[in-house]
């Protein structure tokens, strides 16, 4: 292991902190202790994560063909160059960005709303908390099915409601102009309860005294929310904005069961384009090159989020 020389160097400062008889005996140092647990896992992760990455990297420099026998020709950066000028790819990148931003905003807003309601429940009604978290336990796959059926004009809630009120119209949410927003609503339905529970846990730690002070200052409900409730939650918001960003950019099953990229291309986000390139068109080299762009987007967006928001919260 590369860590060995470091390990011996660390011995001296370590002994200073470890007072008492334990340090006299032959005993594991911090480093050794850490290595014993970390190394097997890291080897596992390297094998099962680095291997696919390396393989994808290798394939991304090749033009893979299946028809007329398997062939992989080395093509340098051709695949990457082709992705750069692929309009369909950039259109799907834009859809992904839109979907992600909407999902993050909706998830945090709805999560806050749910948390506020849960906080204000009178003691006898606390059992409602157990019910409200249920959507989080539903798989993205199941969420997609739920929202496909409730949103589609033919089977949907909108149409049923309209006909119950005597209108003879079909109301559908699975239409090209709003499908991305509708997907975001579904994703937010799935994720918001978890956010709500963490926000709630944080809200509980705000001393009730502060709310009394706010009352004395005659703050309005909104002012109380802004100046008393919100400030301690900012770090939690940041953490969940990051988690939701990553999940939203990665999500595939929700979109697969809900809209299959359609109508037309309207819900063709990055992961779906990737799926179609690699699994439907079997253009593996091109798909692999694309997947590195996707990975770059994910790391880039979370990086930006950290730079403009997280760093400020870390310092607090």
């Amino acid at each position: 292991m590369r860590e060995t020389p470091d390990a011996s160097r660390r011995q001296t400062p370590d002994r200073k902190t470890a007072v008492g008889p334990a340090s006299e005996r032959a005993e594991l140092s911090n480093v050794q202790f850490a290595l014993v647990f970390a190394v097997p896992v890291l080897i596992f992760l390297v094998v099962v994560v680095a291997y696919p990455l390396a393989y994808a990297f290798y394939i991304s420099f090749h033009d893979v063909r299946f028809f007329g026998g398997y062939r992989a020709d080395f093509v340098w950066f051709e695949n990457y160059a082709a992705v750069l000028v692929d309009d369909a790819f950039w259109a799907s990148a834009w859809r992904s960005l839109l979907f992600t931003v909407q999902t993050v905003i909706l998830t945090l807003m709805i999560g806050t709303g749910i948390a506020l309601v849960l906080r204000d429940l009178p003691p006898g009604w606390r059992w409602l908390r157990a019910l409200i978290i249920l959507p989080w336990a539903v798989s993205p796959y199941g969420t997609g099915i739920f929202f496909a059926w409730i949103g589609r004009g033919q089977t949907g809630f909108g149409t049923a409601l309209a006909s119950a009120m005597g209108f003879d119209t079909t109301i559908t949410f699975i239409s090209a102009d709003i499908i991305i927003l509708y997907l975001s609503v579904a994703a937010a339905w799935n994720m918001a309860p978890l956010v709500a529970f963490f926000l709630l846990a944080n809200m509980m730690t705000t001393p009730a005294r502060l709310y009394d002070l706010a009352k004395i200052d005659r703050m309005s409900r909104f002012e109380t929310f802004r100046h008393v409730t919100l400030p301690p939650l900012r770090y939690t918001y940041f953490v969940f904005a990051s988690i939701t960003t990553v999940l939203a950019l990665k999500i595939f099953d929700l979109i697969f069961t809900m809209a299959q990229g359609g109508p037309g291309n309207a819900s063709n986000v990055l992961t779906y384009t990737l799926y179609k390139t690699s699994f439907v068109n079997l253009d593996l080299g091109y798909g692999a090159a694309m997947s590195f762009f996707v990975l770059a987007f994910i790391l880039g967006l979370t990086g930006i989020l950290y730079l403009v928001w997280g760093r400020r919260e870390d310092r607090r």
């Binding site: 696919p52 393989y55 994808a56 394939i59 950019l249 990665k250 595939f252 990737l274 690699s278 593996l284």
Partner: peptide, 10 residues
Amino acid sequence: SLPPVSTLIP
């Protein structure tokens, strides 16, 4: 951060 769709083929 790795999307499952991109690690599937490997």
